[in-house]
C-alpha cells in the first residue's frame, strides 16, 4: 500500500513550488490517523421513517488508505443509502438506527454540523452518477473548483485559480486553462465527471466515494474515468469506495467487494476470491449474467496469450 503523499497528487511545475498548499494540519497529522482506517462501518442499519421499514440490514467494512472497496447490487439494494450515511447526507426521513460509522477515528454520530462541514471534502469526498446536476450551470467550472479551494483551504483568489487549473490537469483534461473558463453545458458528460472528480479531490481527501460515477457514461469514457481513479489511488494513496450495479466495474478496481441485495450484504470478501469462488446464489447469478452477455463470452481465447 502506498503511503499518503499529498505532494505527488499533481505534478506541479517547478516554478510554482512556493505556492505549496500542503495544509499544515494534514501534513503533521498523517502518521497518527493514516495507520487506522479512514472509514469504518460497523453493522450499519438504516431505517425509512415513512414506512418504518429497515432498508439496510447491517453493513460492515473498513477502508484503509490506498484500499478500494466495491459495493455491487441492483437499484434499491441499499448501496447508495449506505454511502450517503457515510457522508452524513441521508435523505430526509432516513436514519441510522443501529451500528456505527467511524470517519478517521471519530464516530460520526457525535459530529456537529460544523465538524461535518470540515470533514467533508477534507477527509471524505464523493462523486455521483449525474455530474451535470452537481454543478451550477451559470458559473464557469473552474471558478466552482476554485471556490471550494478558497473556502476550504483559505487560499487567495490567484492561488486558488492556479490550484484549480492544476487539478483540472491532474484529472487528465486536455486543456485545463481552457476548461477552467468553460460553462458546464460546454462540456461532455465524461469531461464533467472529470471536473467533479477534480473538485472532489481538491482538498485532498483521504477517501473518495464513487457512487455509480461511470454509469451514465459511454464505455470508452467509463474506462477513462476508471483509469483515472486507479491512477489517483496509486499516486496519492486515495482510498476508494466504488459503488456500481456492474460487477465488472467493481472487479476492475477493487480489492474487496460487498455484494448487496435488498439491504443485505449477501457476500463479502476479496474480489478475486468472490469472483472465482462465489458462495451466494445471487453472486453466482450476477457472474452468470455477465458471462452470458458480457464481452468475455465472445472474445476468442487467443486473447489470453
Amino acid at each position: 500500500m502506498s503511503p499518503l503523499t499529498h505532494d505527488t497528487l499533481t505534478s506541479r511545475p517547478a516554478g510554482t513550488a512556493e505556492t505549496t498548499f500542503d495544509a499544515p494540519g494534514t501534513a503533521d497529522a498523517p502518521d497518527a490517523s493514516a495507520a487506522g482506517p479512514v472509514l469504518a462501518l460497523h453493522d450499519v442499519r438504516i431505517t425509512d421513517r415513512v414506512t418504518e421499514r429497515e432498508i439496510v440490514h447491517g453493513v460492515t467494512f473498513e477502508l484503509t488508505p490506498g484500499k478500494a472497496v466495491g459495493i455491487v447490487g441492483e437499484s434499491g439494494s441499499g448501496k447508495t443509502l449506505t454511502c450517503r450515511a457515510a457522508l452524513g447526507i441521508l435523505p430526509p426521513h432516513f436514519e441510522i438506527t443501529a451500528g456505527r460509522i467511524d470517519l478517521a477515528g471519530t464516530d460520526i454520530a457525535t459530529l456537529t454540523p460544523r465538524q461535518w462541514t470540515d470533514l467533508r471534502g477534507a477527509t471524505i469526498s464523493a462523486v455521483f452518477q449525474d455530474p451535470a446536476s452537481y454543478l451550477n450551470p451559470a458559473i464557469k467550472v473552474g471558478a466552482q473548483i476554485a471556490e471550494v479551494i478558497r473556502v476550504k483551504q483559505g487560499l487567495k483568489r490567484r492561488a486558488a485559480r492556479r490550484r484549480a487549473v492544476e487539478l483540472l490537469g491532474a484529472v487528465r483534461l486536455r486543456d485545463p486553462e481552457l476548461v477552467y473558463g468553460q460553462y458546464p453545458y460546454e462540456l461532455s458528460g465524461g469531461m464533467l465527471q472529470r471536473v467533479l472528480i477534480a473538485a472532489a479531490i481538491a482538498v485532498e481527501p483521504r477517501a473518495l466515494i464513487a457512487d455509480e460515477a461511470t454509469t451514465a457514461l459511454d464505455v470508452t469514457v467509463q474506462a477513462e474515468i476508471l483509469d483515472l481513479l486507479a491512477e489517483l489511488r496509486e499516486r496519492t494513496g486515495l482510498a476508494l469506495v466504488v459503488v456500481s450495479h456492474d460487477l465488472a466495474v467493481v472487479a476492475h478496481l477493487c480489492d474487496e467487494v460487498l455484494v448487496m441485495r435488498q439491504g443485505e450484504v449477501v457476500e463479502q470478501g476479496e474480489t478475486r476470491a468472490v469472483l472465482h469462488d462465489p458462495r451466494h446464489d445471487y453472486t453466482r447469478l450476477l457472474i452468470a449474467e455477465h458471462d452470458s452477455y458480457g464481452l468475455d463470452t465472445f472474445l476468442a481465447p487467443k486473447e489470453a496469450s
Binding site: V219, Q222, A248, V249, A251
Partner: peptide, 8 residues
C-alpha cells in the same frame, strides 16, 4: 479494450 470484463 474499454469494456470492463470480469476475469480478464
Amino acid at each position: 479494450g474499454s469494456a470492463p470484463t470480469l476475469r480478464g
